[in-house]
């Protein structure tokens, strides 16, 4: 019985999506839309397979993924400790400089890209720095809100049970603020993924955004749609996996704590143990390693014009 109701649940969730995809396919086949502008789903999928086999699609996917994760890691490494410091240790300073931080958050890194090049040189680093800048602010403000929102009664209770300041931090403040930290990270990763694609479209030589842009310039419409499918899929996967870890790690999340997200956060579904957290971290590290290797390979291919005819056409 349970299997059957699971199946029905899944059907209820996915049927509309399947219908949309079917409508896409059929509208092209039946000639309702011009296939030159809207190739059907099957044409887009075959473009995906073609790119996988002939033009290193896997490499481009991993390059994009590595960039966005590196940006997020950098933002978290700076933003989370900084916000804890400001929110817990120096609340007076936090109050005084918050307006300035808000102004910084409004500076579009895209417009000052030359400055990033001045600081970080050419190549990969300035791109990752731009992404880190974009995701830093949601992470910072999310963490700050989380740290400030910790119920003072909790802290006082812990103190009254003779908890030292480090115990208060590790056992009360950190867990109480973490959902908010995590939501900040999710917002950050969403925004930086959007910006990544734009950045790859204008100033990169590899990555999914670059495929869309060069396919657009070469008028290879099915490839635009194929790369688009990959981008959407990667975006959904990123969001889903963050949500999965969020729900598993922060099992005390109330459902629907994130009013601005499309998917609902649900607490207490499955609690992740240490082992699965370690497995996730290992997977993450492998993905980063592969991504770094693929970035290096993309550079190498760039200098080998025989390998990728698209590069030459694009350079001209």
């Amino acid at each position: 019985m349970a299997v059957r109701s699971d199946a029905r649940d899944a059907a209820g969730k996915y049927w509309l999506l399947v219908l949309m995809l079917a409508a896409w396919e059929l509208s092209g086949r039946l000639g309702l839309v011009d296939q030159a502008f809207v190739p059907s789903l099957s044409a887009a999928l075959s473009a995906v397979f073609d790119m996988w086999e002939r033009t290193h699609l896997f490499m481009h996917v991993m390059v994009s993924l590595a960039r966005v994760t590196a940006g997020l890691l950098a933002a978290a490494a700076v933003g989370v400790p900084l916000a804890y410091l400001l929110g817990r240790t120096l609340p007076g300073l936090a109050e005084r400089i918050e307006a300035l931080l808000r102004v910084f958050a409004l500076i579009n890194p895209y417009c000052v890209f030359p400055l990033f090049v001045v600081f970080f040189g050419a190549g990969e680093l300035p791109k990752i720095a731009v992404l880190a800048w974009v995701s830093l602010w949601p992470v910072l403000f999310g963490t700050l809100a989380g740290v400030r929102g910790v119920d003072p009664a909790l802290i006082r209770t812990a103190r009254s049970m003779a908890a030292g300041s480090s115990a208060v931090f590790w056992k009360v403040v950190l867990p109480a603020a973490s959902p908010s930290v995590f939501n900040g990270m999710r917002t950050g990763v969403g925004m930086s993924f959007f910006i990544l694609i734009a950045a790859e479209m204008t100033g990169a030589t590899a990555g999914l955004g670059w495929i869309v842009h060069s396919a657009g310039a070469l008028n290879q419409v099915p490839r635009i749609y194929g790369a688009g499918l990959c981008i959407v899929l990667l975006g959904v996967l990123l969001n889903r996996s963050l949500l999965f870890f969020g729900n598993g790690l922060f099992f005390w999340w109330k459902s629907g704590t994130d009013p601005l997200a499309g998917v609902r956060t649900e607490g207490a579904a499955r609690r992740l143990g240490l082992r699965s957290a370690l497995a996730a971290a290992a997977l993450f590290a492998v993905a980063m390693g592969v991504g770094a290797y693929e970035i290096w390979r993309a550079e190498a291919l760039l200098n080998d014009p025989g390998e990728m005819p698209e590069y030459r056409v694009w350079a001209e």
Binding site: I224, G228, V232
Partner: peptide
């Protein structure tokens, strides 16, 4: 929920090219 989640992931810049 599911279609909305997928649609909201359609990158605006991707849309631009289309």
């Amino acid at each position: 929920d599911m279609p909305f989640e997928v649609l909201s992931q359609i990158n605006p810049f991707l849309l631009f090219h289309v």
